[in-house]
Design a protein around this nucleic acid. Structure first.
Lengths: 190, 190
DNA sequence: GTCTATACTAAGATAGAC
DNA sequence: GTCTATCTTAGTATAGAC
């Protein structure tokens, strides 16, 4: 029962993976050509320009991540939801040499056109909105820190996850995401 | 009394600035040529390869940042030191369209040679070591959160600063660094 | 929809004159 | 130390045959 992917989907998947690894300016149509097995001119057929390709990549990635976030059990305590969110964020990164696509593109943003900036902003906003709710709950049930507003805490936490992704890969370790989680909880971890 | 900079210094300064803006793969010797006013072949005279250039840039940048960090008043309470550190981190970023050189290179790390990775790791370690001491003090004087160990908190905080730098620029705002600071303090901000 | 062929531009780098 | 000139490769992109 294998659902064979179209060439278009393969291109998009590999483009996302390559950008998570090397960034927008660190991969080429030739790389995609080698991976997918079609000529670069064929890739231009699906995605006329590289800008078109990134934009679609961000949309697809955002959808994917948001679908995963939605599966977080609403019955969990805030602390548990936060842990789940952090774990899922780590899992989308694969073997350890990839970072979040939108974190990467945020680094490359000054070389990208405005529509891409807006799409990456939308990704951040969606995740921060989800986290804001978790921190608001955490303030009520007393499991999460309250020194900042839920909005501030959510943005700081998401920034910390992005930064921890960078550092994890830099040091070739996996532990940095968990440290972030521990730092935003009120009770000491065992 | 103006100390005229050598061509070599100008190249290095502009290289650092360009990388903080567009990343390693987003600038060229031609860009530097235009900015400094010498031909690209002259730049190769000082820095034979682009790898040589980045490596020296990281060293110079690390020295610069560490010198600034050392000026933090030892008499300050931990909370105050943390605020100073965050403020200084923000100030090295300039107008708002630059991010930390080593945060940027951490994003580009998979396209860079091992010596650069080690140098960027050293930058992270030095800053995290400084922050570890601040968080240890903060645990004693009761101004900073203690849900994680000082080492964990330091790494999480530094990651949050890096992530906040990315987000600040993405959204063209400046407030995100302060939110990070607020989230790591125990007492509510006024 | 995929190919060959081909622009065109840019990139990193080197040789050798001045 | 800086230049001109050149090399080589790679990059995005397009035209047109199949």
């Amino acid at each position: 029962m294998e659902t064979t992917k179209t060439v278009r989907e393969q291109i998009l998947d590999h483009a996302i993976s390559l950008m998570m690894l090397r960034g927008y300016n660190g991969f080429s149509y030739r790389d995609l050509s080698d991976l997918v097995g079609v000529k670069t001119s064929s890739i231009h057929y699906y995605f006329p320009s590289k800008d078109d390709l990134v934009l679609e990549a961000v949309h697809a990635y955002t959808r994917e991540v948001q679908d995963a976030v939605k599966t977080i059990d609403a019955g969990l305590p805030a602390e548990g939801k936060l842990a789940k969110f952090a774990k899922m964020f780590g899992r989308t990164l694969g073997d350890g040499d990839h970072i979040c696509l939108c974190g990467m593109l945020a680094a490359d943003i000054e070389t990208l056109p405005e529509p891409v900036r807006l799409a990456v902003q939308a990704f951040f906003k969606a995740n921060e909105a989800c986290l804001t709710q978790i921190f608001a709950e955490g303030a009520s049930d007393g499991t999460l820190a309250t020194s900042a507003t839920p909005e501030q805490a959510a943005r700081a936490f998401f920034a910390a996850l992005q930064g921890a992704g960078l550092a994890s890969r830099l040091f070739r370790t996996k532990s940095r995401l968990e440290e972030v989680e521990a730092s935003f909880k009120l009770s000491k971890q065992k």
